[in-house]
Design a binder for these strands. Structure first.
Length: 827
RNA sequence: GCCCGGGUGGCGGAAUAGGCAGACGCACAGGACUUAAAAUCCUGCGGUGGCAACACCGUGCCGGUUCGACCCCGGCUCCGGGCACCA
């Protein structure tokens, strides 16, 4: 063992050794229980950033800890390798996307290896590899055959900069989630997955996910957006055209004073035809439908009379039909009833256009409302009035009763609406999984037969700066023959959203090299579900919702036997510098490479785990990094100074009665085992775990310095030193391995069993308690630890110093808390 | 507007079940070692007053419950995130 901590040499040596020994390979079958630890795989952008380092350091601690606890830990890594940046690089630098991507992967893989992460690299996957996307295509076809995948002509989100369509989830406040360009609307033929068929199950099963943060579950709940209500049908006067509205408040149907249709609603043109309103309506629709949803909904409410009226089937009243910008065509039925008295939007609209307001809910029997006095809508609960047979009914009951009545009369029905839309998966891009569909003039859209998979992405493609997919200009790719009739046919040139690729990679890791199937059912059964998933909260909806959907589909197809993919989810916070997210434009980026170069991987990992608990944002501090480095040096010097004594020491004999400093050293050792185990297992509070190891190391220093070498108990010292090395192993794996080997051990420290604490070592003879007077701290004192509350009270109360405290005061009550305090309440 | 988080020393953070606020680390100050510096080691480090023992104040603000509140309840405020004309 060298006197100096030479992290470079140590990290290189052990990384090579572990690789040569194949230390992190995990078997598919064994007697040990399984644990699946997964971190979100990265997009191979070129270099690791600190967010990656944090994500993977957290996962590595858990994986190593679980391994030491006796589990077979599946801890894989791979690459979310399809995507637009590869195409941009091709256009900009003339490098083919495949070359660019594989070069990046090679570099990032070596960076990950430099961090000393315990991945089973035999299981590496890359979504751009034909052996991976072949099965993505196969899964697409399984959904297709099940009717969960369809092509539809629809108004879709189009990003002009990315030159492709986007899923709803990828539009953030009207802008592209990737490049922030303003999203436009286009009418196109597009492929969708029928995720809406799973709305209710995706919602219901959120309750089963006890290991997920509430925040993420709430976000998914909101996104699915279940809303219970009724559809009610009104008939247009004259023509008899039916207008069905969706409402969550059927109890207010007697308060309807107008109807509103979305601008795109087919009846708008029909109803206004031939009325004096016709031109005005056409002009309004023309203007409004050009606007994006965001532009429409952020402007003031506007509407025009269509010239037609309809009859409220509940009270026979005649109300005008309008069209307005605040009604969305794609939600519900694209039509709403206007109840200004009890809906804020309707109130605002009615005030602007002078439409009548009719109160049909009173706050209570004694408290009424009048339309004239109202300054805002009354949306709370109350009693129904002006509502024919329903007068006097509490409105909550009224919702049920009106719906029931509508069903009996055939003018409506109860219904549940979801905000969730089907998942648009086709992309007009080259660098993605080709959609395995062939278009034949005779047979229509024909799925590519299984034996023809994969539909290979051609690599000899020309990129144009227009951004158009080069597949369109590649006849070798798109010209083919129909699998059904053999006539000439064309391939689909759209590729799949990369979120499709990342929605099943956790399953592929269970059978990464299987050439016969997407995964082995037995393998998936052994490893699924993922016990711990770790990644950024930015995937709360997109990736995590899609993966849940896929798993449910696979369950229904009999491909897996779990209904949820991720048992426990840890969403790590961002890495900040000077209070802001690291970014090139802000110039506050700290490069992992530089930190590893200067301080080593162990220091980088230790700092990032110590500086904050994983879920919180982490403020980067160069000083803090130095502190972590200093600590590792301190551990090194300690072990160096006692290495021979430790190596030669016997084990602590069970039951040995230690006293004084020796006893205290043992207490500290076993307390550290207890505390670090608790911090790493349940709470993932690595910061407090590390601080406990620091306390142990500080304690060993004191023990070494204050006790002469001859009086030192070698067994106690060795126990403390060995424990600190083992506890440090998941956090700083290289230095721990080196120290382990230098203190006379054989076998990797990472294959040692995680230590168990000895409860008898934690028992103290004396405890410090405080004496409070009316809850205020007055005195600290030491008492025997085994005192019962009554004994403790008597003992403390008789102490002269305490007598002095309470002299001349009337004692009202005394509250003894064993091992903690005694509170004396006096007057 | 609605729904989640979060406000604790100069800084990152700790207090896991209502029981000693500030563990651990950073920064800073003083000291030891050194010709000197770095490294290392030791000591101090919430505020105010005091030579000191000690006293008083102190977890965003106001109030409540309790023998006792960073922690529970009510009301506000500021910061971060999500959703937002979804009928």
């Amino acid at each position: 063992m060298q006197e100096q901590y030479d992290f470079k040499q140590i990290e290189n040596t052990w990384q090579q050794y572990w690789e040569n020994q194949d230390l992190y390979r995990v078997p598919d079958h064994s007697e040990r229980p399984k644990y699946y630890c997964l971190e979100m795989f990265p997009y191979p952008s070129g270099k690791l950033h600190m967010g990656h380092v944090r994500n993977y350091s957290i996962g590595d601690v858990i994986a190593r800890f679980k391994t030491m606890q006796g589990y077979d830990v599946l801890h894989p890594m791979g690459w979310d390798a399809f995507g637009l940046p590869a195409e941009n690089a091709a256009i900009k630098h003339g490098i083919p996307p495949a070359t660019w991507t594989w070069d990046n992967i090679a570099h990032m893989r070596s960076q990950l290896k430099q961090l000393g992460l315990s991945y089973d690299w035999h299981r590496e996957v890359a979504t751009c590899h034909p052996e991976y996307y072949k099965w993505g295509q196969w899964l697409f076809l399984q959904l297709y055959k099940k009717g969960l995948c369809y092509k539809k002509h629809a108004r879709v989100n189009w990003c002009p900069d990315c030159a492709t369509v986007l899923a709803n989830e990828q539009v953030v406040e009207g802008n592209c989630e990737r490049c922030s360009a303003t999203v436009e609307q286009k009418e196109l033929d597009q492929w969708f997955f029928r995720i809406t068929d799973y709305s209710q199950r995706l919602l219901d099963d959120l309750k089963k996910l006890e290991g997920w943060p509430d925040k993420v579950k709430i976000m998914q709940d909101n996104w699915i957006g279940r809303s219970e209500g009724a559809e009610l049908t009104f008939k247009a006067e004259g023509s008899g055209d039916e207008i069905t509205v969706f409402t969550t408040r059927p109890d207010t149907v007697y308060g309807v004073t107008y109807m509103v249709l979305a601008a795109e609603h087919p009846l708008v043109a029909k109803l206004s035809a031939g009325t004096p309103q016709e031109n005005e309506v056409a002009e309004f629709v023309n203007r409004v439908s050009k606007l994006t949803e965001l532009a429409r909904t952020s402007s003031e409410k506007e509407g025009v009379f269509t010239g037609a009226c309809c009859i409220n089937p509940f009270n026979g009243e005649r109300v005008p039909i309008l069209t307005a910008n605040y009604v969305l065509y794609h939600y519900g039925t694209g039509a709403v009833m206007g109840v200004p008295a009890h809906d804020e939007r309707d109130f605002e609209f009615a005030k602007k256009y002078d439409l009548p307001i009719r109160v049909v809910i009173h706050p209570s029997k004694d408290k009424g409302l009048t339309a004239e006095e109202m300054t805002q809508a009354y949306t709370e609960d109350g009693i129904m009035v002006n509502s024919g047979p329903f007068d006097g009914t509490p409105n909550r009951q009224g919702i049920r009763k009106v719906t029931q009545y509508a069903e009996e009369k055939g003018i409506g029905k109860g219904i549940i609406n979801y905000r969730l839309r089907d998942w648009l998966i086709s992309r007009q891009r080259y660098w993605g999984t080709p959609i395995p569909i062939i278009y034949c003039k005779k047979c229509g859209a024909v799925p590519v037969p299984d034996h023809q998979l994969p539909v290979l992405l051609p690599t000899d493609v020309a990129f144009k700066p227009t951004g158009e997919s080069p597949l369109k200009g590649n006849p070798d790719f798109f010209n083919t023959t129909c699998p059904q009739c053999g006539e000439p046919a064309q391939r689909e040139t759209d590729t799949m959203d990369t979120f499709v690729d990342s929605s099943w990679y956790y399953l592929r890791y269970t059978s990464p090299r299987d050439t016969e199937q997407a995964w082995g059912k037995d393998k998936a059964a052994r490893w699924m579900s993922v016990d711990q998933y770790i990644g950024g909260v930015e995937h709360a909806i997109l990736h995590l919702l899609y993966s849940r959907f896929f798993t449910k589909v696979f369950y229904d197809l009999g491909l897996v036997n779990v209904e949820e993919p991720f048992e426990n989810l840890l969403t790590q916070g961002m890495v900040l510098k000077d209070g802001a997210k690291m970014s090139k434009s802000k110039g506050n980026v700290v490069s992992p490479e530089e930190i590893i170069q200067r301080y080593g991987a162990d220091t980088a990992r230790l700092f990032i785990l110590f500086a904050a608990p994983p879920e919180r944002d982490l403020e980067w501090s160069d000083r803090g990094v130095e502190g972590s480095h200093r600590f590792l040096n301190r551990v090194w010097r300690l072990v160096y100074s006692v290495r021979d004594q430790v190596a030669a020491a016997p084990a602590v004999a069970p039951g040995t009665p230690y006293v004084g400093v020796h006893k205290e050293m043992r207490r500290l050792t076993h307390y550290a085992i207890k505390k670090v185990t608790e911090d790493v297992s349940g709470r993932f509070n690595f910061n407090t775990g590390i601080s406990t190891i620091m306390e142990l190391v500080n304690g060993i220093h004191t023990y070494r310095d204050k006790v002469a070498e001859v009086e030192r108990d070698a067994a106690v010292l060795a126990e403390a030193v060995n424990t600190s090395i083992i506890l440090l192993a998941p956090f700083a794996p290289h230095i721990a391995e080196e120290l382990w080997q230098s203190t006379g051990h054989s076998g990797s420290v990472h294959r040692q069993p995680w230590p168990q604490y000895d409860p008898t070592a934690l028992v103290e003879d004396e405890v410090e308690i405080v004496v409070q007077l009316n809850g205020k701290l007055r005195e600290r004192l030491h008492i025997p630890a085994n005192m019962k509350p009554a004994e403790m009270q008597q003992y403390v109360m008789e102490l002269p110093s305490v007598q002095e405290l309470i002299a001349g005061k009337q004692i009202i009550k005394v509250i003894p808390v064993p091992g903690k305090l005694l509170n004396i309440v006096v007057k």
